[in-house]
Measured scan of single mutants.
Amino acid sequence: MSIQHFRVALIPFFAAFCLPVFAHPETLVKVKDAEDQLGARVGYIELDLNSGKILESFRPEERFPMMSTFKVLLCGAVLSRVDAGQEQLGRRIHYSQNDLVEYSPVTEKHLTDGMTVRELCSAAITMSDNTAANLLLTTIGGPKELTAFLHNMGDHVTRLDRWEPELNEAIPNDERDTTMPAAMATTLRKLLTGELLTLASRQQLIDWMEADKVAGPLLRSALPAGWFIADKSGAGERGSRGIIAALGPDGKPSRIVVIYTTGSQATMDERNRQIAEIGASLIKHW
């Protein structure tokens, strides 16, 4: 067993022997301040990774656009098919120029040779490549099948209805392509620590998230040296922004954090800054 596999296998073990965790309302004060600064709703939840206990939450059962955070769930569904012998990570998928959609920095470079399922998941999570996500959605049967996968996990809230990039439209009061912070946090925890996926697939999923290259201005910008984070960000229309993450000190994750916002007129930089400040408060009061 590799060191990384050992780390993920012992996530519940280490967490069980940690000192009790206590909620700190100071972080919620910052979440509410972010709402004021952005002029928009902000949803927040913080779960203990081992027990699933909610440590703090704000608007945990209000719907927010998922945006690209759905790509972690998508690759979880792909990995479940791999575990069941219905898919192979090494299978190569070929596609054409007509398949390319807006923001496809990886797939646009491989029109000639195609990409493997493993490479597509890596591109979808680490670079948020939209064509990679659409190609992977095709392998599982489309958005409705991802929703069905989530329902089978016990998540009857999260739903995907459309493809990239239309799913980022974020129309107010439109339930399409949305989740709730509580539902997303619980589902992410199941994917990373539950028995739904094999140990190898859980490790692969967290490795992809740990290698995320496009979430630097968010929670990662607030992390002290030595902290662990595996995350996936999302951005959408109407001032929408979000991030889902597993993080913790001492090089291992111990909490799940989900943050979503929508309806702001603020710039992307300002949305990023507010999420980073929430992260800084979380870490300060850990």
Rank of each mutant, 00 (worst) to 15 (best):
L28K: 03
V29A: 08
K30P: 14
K32T: 02
K32Y: 08
K32L: 08
D33I: 06
E35P: 13
Q37P: 06
L38N: 01
G39E: 07
A40I: 15
I45M: 00
I45K: 00
I45S: 00
L49V: 05
L49K: 05
N50Q: 02
K53W: 05
I54S: 14
E56T: 14
R59P: 04
R59S: 08
R59H: 04
R63K: 05
M67V: 11
S68G: 00
V72H: 05
L73Y: 02
L73D: 14
R81Q: 08
A84M: 10
A84T: 10
G85M: 15
G85N: 15
Q86H: 10
Q86S: 13
Q86P: 09
E87T: 07
Q88E: 09
L89W: 06
R91I: 08
I93G: 03
I93R: 04
Q97S: 13
Q97C: 14
D99C: 03
Y103G: 01
Y103S: 12
L111P: 04
L111M: 00
D113E: 00
M115G: 02
T116S: 11
T116G: 01
V117G: 08
V117F: 03
A123W: 15
A124D: 14
A124T: 15
A124Q: 05
I125D: 02
T126I: 14
T126Q: 00
D129E: 00
N130V: 07
T131E: 07
A133S: 07
A133R: 03
L135H: 06
L136Q: 15
L137Y: 11
L137A: 15
T139W: 07
I140E: 13
G141I: 01
G142I: 03
G142T: 07
P143H: 07
T147E: 05
T147A: 06
T147D: 04
L150W: 15
M153K: 14
M153C: 10
G154A: 07
G154I: 00
V157Q: 05
T158V: 06
D161Y: 08
D161R: 04
W163R: 11
E164Q: 00
P165E: 00
E166H: 10
I171K: 00
P172N: 11
P172H: 13
E175R: 10
R176K: 15
R176V: 12
R176M: 15
D177E: 11
T178Q: 09
A182W: 11
A182E: 11
L192F: 02
L192W: 10
G194A: 09
L197N: 10
T198P: 12
A200N: 14
A200E: 14
S201W: 04
R202T: 08
Q204E: 02
L205W: 04
L205Y: 01
I206H: 12
I206Y: 14
M209S: 06
E210K: 09
D212I: 14
K213L: 05
K213I: 10
A215V: 06
A215Q: 02
L218P: 07
L219M: 09
L219K: 12
R220E: 04
R220W: 06
R220L: 05
R220P: 04
P224C: 05
P224V: 07
W227A: 08
F228Y: 02
I229D: 07
D231S: 11
S233A: 12
G236C: 02
G236S: 05
R238W: 12
R241C: 04
G242N: 01
I243Q: 05
I244A: 04
L247G: 10
P249H: 07
S254C: 12
V257F: 05
V258A: 08
V258P: 04
I259Y: 12
A266R: 08
M268H: 03
D269F: 08
D269L: 05
E270Y: 02
N272P: 15
R273F: 13
R273N: 06
I275N: 15
A276Y: 06
E277K: 13
I278N: 13
G279K: 05
S281N: 11
I283L: 09
I283N: 07
I283C: 13
W286M: 05
